[in-house]
């Protein structure tokens, strides 16, 4: 309950910060840029729009997740606002959970807004012809030629995967922020993100007979122990609906569970460290 109060306040704080709006505009802008590639074939344009949409939601979301994650708790300590909070009947773990939850909500709202903007652009794009009839004030063809793309659910699933990836990164940064300084944490979280993103590489290396045995273990450790962000890169079958992707939704659920389990691990570690932290 107390954690929820802190989460709400964290969210309120975040949405009043202009910086998040900036990322929102950047995301929308970069999706719109992909609309200018009209010299390509229509299908290619749609493919690029989808790639850009999912990619840009992730790209700008990364900044939001990392900047929020590394600063949520340290900002309170730095600005000494934490004194008046922790001297109220707030348990330390409630505070950590509240800050994280607030960040998670902020991230969700941002990803949802970026995603919605992208889906809107996408629907307008695939309905270019319907819109042209609208421009010529011919409403009849508009109604008949408008399509509700069957790809929207898939794209929403893709956006959800991006969110899970960002949520896991947020948890990493929040966990590290209980012991690392903001600058150190920025590099630390980024490094973990990259190490966890190249999972296809680490997996292959850990199984390759050409890798020395010690390195194989190291790669396996990286692959299984570092949070595996690569698990959420399932955009390809979403971008190419014609490609059969068996059991994709089963996979996505497992990836969600993976992310939630790992998030809990990171939060437990963060809480344990923060319990002993001098503020």
């Amino acid at each position: 309950m107390t954690a929820w109060v802190i989460a709400r306040n964290t969210f309120g704080e975040a949405i009043r910060k202009k910086i998040l709006n900036v990322f929102l505009i950047l995301a929308l802008g970069s999706v719109l840029i992909s609309l200018t590639f009209t010299f390509l074939e229509f299908r290619q344009q749609v493919v690029i729009l989808k790639s850009f949409g999912l990619g840009m939601v992730q790209f700008w979301g990364l900044f939001i997740a990392i900047i929020m994650g590394i600063s949520l708790i340290p900002a309170d300590i730095e600005q000494r606002t934490i004194y008046t909070i922790l001297s109220k009947p707030v348990k330390r773990y409630e505070y950590v959970l509240g800050r994280f939850l607030g960040g998670a909500i902020t991230l969700a709202v941002n990803v949802a807004l970026m995603g919605a903007a992208f889906l809107l652009v996408f629907l307008l794009k695939v309905n270019t012809r319907a819109l042209e009839s609208l421009a010529s004030l011919d409403f009849g063809p508009f109604w008949t030629s408008w399509v509700w793309s069957g790809e929207v659910p898939g794209l929403i699933g893709g956006i959800a995967m991006v969110y899970m990836k960002l949520l896991l990164l947020l948890a990493v940064a929040v966990c590290f922020s209980t012991f690392a300084t903001v600058t150190v944490n920025f590099f630390l979280s980024s490094a973990v993100f990259i190490a966890g993103s190249i999972s296809s590489v680490t997996e292959a290396m850990s199984k390759s007979p050409n890798t020395p045995i010690v390195l194989r273990w190291l790669y396996a450790a990286v692959h299984y122990v570092v949070p595996n962000f690569g698990n959420y890169d399932v955009q390809n079958p979403i971008i190419h609906p014609e490609v059969p992707a068996a059991d994709l939704s089963l996979y996505m659920w497992k990836a969600v569970f993976y992310g939630l389990a790992y998030t809990i691990i990171l939060l437990v570690v963060g809480v344990l460290v923060f319990e002993r932290k001098e503020v």
Partner: peptide, 24 residues
Amino acid sequence: PESPYFYEHLSGYEVLDFYATLFG
């Protein structure tokens, strides 16, 4: 606290309301 700091994005009313909520 000595030279206290509070969430600057809140108004006087909101910040006190926030603290009051923490007390349930």
